[in-house]
Design a protein around this nucleic acid. Structure first.
Lengths: 162, 162
DNA sequence: TGAAATGCGGATAATAACTATCCGCTTTGT
DNA sequence: ACAAAGCGGATAGTTATTATCCGCATTTCA
C-alpha cells in the first residue's frame, strides 16, 4: 500500500505556493520545472487541489495557482485528502457475513469489530496529518535549509509569479 | 491507497485461530470456507503470516495453522505488517533535489521536511494498530456477537481442528 | 481583434500492483 | 504407499497508478 507520488508533489507545490505574497500566483509549468516532474501529470494533482478548495486557480494566459487560504489554515490532511480522497485506507468487505454458522437473514447492528480497529488507526493517521499545517512546514523548512537556498528559491519563484 | 483485501482476511483468520486451544490447528481449506474466500489466494496470506512469525505452521496431511504466540501478545500491527510489509505508506522521492536553485553537490543532513511529517503520520497509524491485540479483538467479538453464533462458530471450528 | 499562454476535462496508453489460479514439490498421518 | 496439506514459483486477469495528448474555454497582451 503506497500513497501516490502525486501526494508528495502536491505537498511540495503547496510549500512553494506558501512563499507567494497574497494575490500572486504560479503556473503549473513553473511548479513542474521547479520540482522536476512532468507538467501534464502534475496538472492533474493541481486540479485535484483546486477542486478540493485547497488552492485557488486563475485561468487564462499568465494564469496559475495560489493557496486558497492562509498557510496556517491549510493542513497536510487537506492536501493529502485532495489527492488521495477521503475514503478509509481499510475497506471492509464484511466477510463475517460468509460465516456458514450465521443465519442468512441476520442483520448486524454494529460494524465489524476488525473494521472498527482498522478505521480507528486510519483516523489516527488523519489526525496526525491534520495536526501539521503549511505554516508549520514553512517554519521547518526555514530551519532546515540554508539562507542561500531559501533566498535563491524565493527569487526563482517570485521571478515567475504573476 | 487501499490496503489489500488479504489484510482483512488475515485478521479474521487470526481471530478464528485465537479460538483454538493450544496445540490444535486449522487448515487453510477450513479458514477459506469459513470466510468465503478463495483458498489458494488465502494461502498466500497465511504463508505471509507464517514467514512473519505470526502463526505456526504444521505440515503434512492434517496440517494447518495456529497462532505462534498467545493472542494477547499478537497485535493488529503484527498481522497487518506481515501482509502489507513494514515500509512506510509514504515514499519520499526526494524531489527537493530537483530544485534548480540547488547546487548539484549539496548533501542533505536531514530527511525532507515533508517526508518527516508523512512518516510521523505513518508511525501514528502503526502505533494505533500496535495498541490492539488479538485478545482484545476476541473480547470485542464476545460482546458484539450473539451467544448462539459464538457457540456455533466455535463448534464449527473445533470440529475441523486437528 | 487576434494570437498565445494557461487551466480543464476527457481519451488513451504504458506500467505496476493486486487478485486469482495452477502445478510440481515436500511433508506427514493413516 | 497413498492422500491431504503447506510451500514456492509460474502465469493470467483485473484494477490502479503514471503519463501523455488533444480540444476547448478563459484571459492577457500586442
Amino acid at each position: 500500500m503506497q500513497l501516490k507520488s502525486q501526494v508528495e508533489w502536491a505537498l511540495h507545490c503547496c510549500a512553494i505556493l506558501g512563499m507567494l505574497p497574497p494575490d500572486r500566483h504560479l503556473s503549473a509549468k513553473a511548479l513542474a520545472e521547479f520540482h522536476g516532474v512532468p507538467k501534464e501529470y502534475l496538472s492533474k494533482a493541481l486540479q485535484s487541489l483546486s477542486q478540493a478548495g485547497v488552492v485557488h486557480t486563475t485561468a487564462g494566459v499568465a494564469g496559475g495557482y495560489r493557496l486558497a487560504r492562509p498557510a496556517g489554515e491549510l493542513s497536510f490532511l487537506d492536501v493529502v485528502e485532495a489527492v488521495e480522497g477521503r475514503r478509509s485506507t481499510f475497506q471492509c468487505a464484511n466477510i463475517r457475513a460468509n460465516n456458514p454458522c450465521r443465519p442468512a437473514d441476520q442483520c448486524d447492528d454494529k460494524p465489524c469489530a476488525v473494521a472498527r480497529v482498522m478505521w480507528d488507526a486510519d483516523a489516527a493517521w488523519r489526525a496526525s496529518l491534520a495536526g501539521v499545517n503549511l505554516a508549520g512546514l514553512a517554519a521547518t523548512l526555514n530551519d532546515d535549509l540554508s539562507r542561500e537556498l531559501l533566498a535563491a528559491s524565493e527569487k526563482w519563484v517570485l521571478d515567475r509569479a504573476r
